[in-house]
Each structure stands twice: as structure tokens, then as C-alpha cells.
């Protein structure tokens, strides 16, 4: 039986299997059809129906379930929602267990969240450092603004932490994005 305790381990192996079988195109189709539209339909219903309120409810529940130690924080200012991930439970599981089949596990998040936000009328600012830290801002697509200044929107802004500074040698960044294909790698 496939269980949920070590789900992230074989989920990550699934990305590699799919890419070997059908290339990046098949993997992105999987994130869209299987994850964004099927598995995470509860997120889709909440966010398409209630916008920023739905985001707060969805991630408030799911991050608490996946990360009871509160390795994250959520902030909101009007229609802008921000998530700071200090200790990603999912990537952390992979790092602790030495699991790495696919080249960038973190891409799966924007792989399923990007199309959802596009349908909900939002754009995404996001960076991840491949070490279990990332941040997200969701802005209305009709009125997008730049990412918030460091520490302005969130007291627990991950960009203020030593972990972020230490591990930000190679950041994957997305600005005003709605798809995993819009990645910019820094530096």
C-alpha cells in the first residue's frame, strides 16, 4: 500500500518517472490535471469561490496538518496573501531522508498552484532556495504590484532569516507568474 506518511518520497520519484516517460510536458500535465484539478479540488473550490479568504482557509488548514510545528507563517493585506515557509515539511522530509530523484522538487508547488491562480485571477511572486525555505505572494492579476519589501508584509518574512541568506546562493524565482514555465533562476 502507498501510505500518506512518506507520500512526499514517492511523489518526488513519480516526477522523475513521468519526465523519463513523457518529458517535461507530461510532468506539467500531471501537475495540472492530477494535482491542481483533481487532488487539490478542495483548494480550487475555496480559492475560486472566495479569493484571498479561500487562500487563508485552505493554507491555514493544510499547512497546519502537514507542519504542526508551524514552520510557516501566513500574512494578508487586502487582496494580497503572503506565505513564508521557514521549514517546508515536504522538502524537509526529502532532505532528511536523502531522497532526490527529480532535479527540482519545489517546482511541483507552482506546477499546481500556478494554473489555479490563473483561473482565480491572481498572479504569483515566489522564490524557493531548494533547502526548505520559500515565500509566496498572491496578487490580483488585474492590479498586480511588486513583491513586498523585505519584512513589510510579514513579521516572519523568511528573507530576514539566516537560513535564507545562507542558502540563497541559487534561487528559483517567479514574478507575476501563473506557470512553472515562467521560472527565472538567480544568479
Amino acid at each position: 500500500m502507498l501510505g500518506c506518511y512518506d507520500f512526499c518520497g514517492y511523489y518526488e520519484a513519480t516526477f522523475q518517472w513521468l519526465e523519463e516517460r513523457g518529458g517535461e510536458e507530461l510532468l506539467h500535465e500531471y501537475w495540472l490535471e492530477a494535482i491542481s484539478k483533481d487532488s487539490q479540488r478542495h483548494a480550487r473550490d475555496l480559492i475560486l469561490g472566495r479569493g484571498a479568504d479561500g487562500m487563508m482557509e485552505y493554507w491555514g488548514h493544510t499547512l497546519n496538518e502537514e507542519s504542526p510545528d508551524q514552520g510557516f507563517s501566513m500574512s494578508r493585506e487586502g487582496d494580497v496573501v503572503r506565505i513564508d515557509m521557514h521549514d517546508c515539511p515536504s522538502k524537509g522530509f526529502l532532505l532528511r531522508n536523502g531522497l532526490e530523484q527529480y532535479r527540482d522538487y519545489c517546482d511541483h508547488c507552482i506546477g499546481w498552484i500556478g494554473p489555479l491562480m490563473k483561473d482565480a485571477g491572481y498572479v504569483i511572486h515566489h522564490e524557493h532556495n531548494h533547502c526548505g525555505q520559500c515565500w509566496w505572494e498572491f496578487h490580483k492579476a488585474e492590479n498586480p504590484s511588486s513583491p513586498s519589501d523585505i519584512g513589510k508584509l510579514a513579521k516572519k518574512d523568511v528573507r530576514l532569516t539566516e537560513d535564507w541568506k545562507e542558502h540563497c546562493k541559487k534561487l528559483d524565482a517567479f514574478f507575476n507568474a501563473q506557470s512553472v514555465l515562467e521560472k527565472k533562476t538567480e544568479p
Binding site: G3, Y5, L26, E33, D38, S39, Q40, H42, T62, N97
Partner: peptide, 28 residues
């Protein structure tokens, strides 16, 4: 268990993804 987590049990909503993955692979 060969792969261990910091919490004692997994998050049940991951069963959604297992079911959805099967559907995608089987149908696609």
C-alpha cells in the same frame, strides 16, 4: 520504516493525490 518524518502520522489529504495520480496514469 526506511523513510522517517518528524511527525508521528502522515497528512490524510495526501490520499487525494494518490487517488488522483492513479486516475491520471491509468487514463492518460
Amino acid at each position: 520504516l526506511p523513510y522517517t518524518d518528524t511527525k508521528p502520522q502522515g497528512a490524510a489529504d495526501f490520499y487525494f493525490a494518490i487517488n488522483a495520480t492513479f486516475r491520471f496514469l491509468y487514463e492518460r
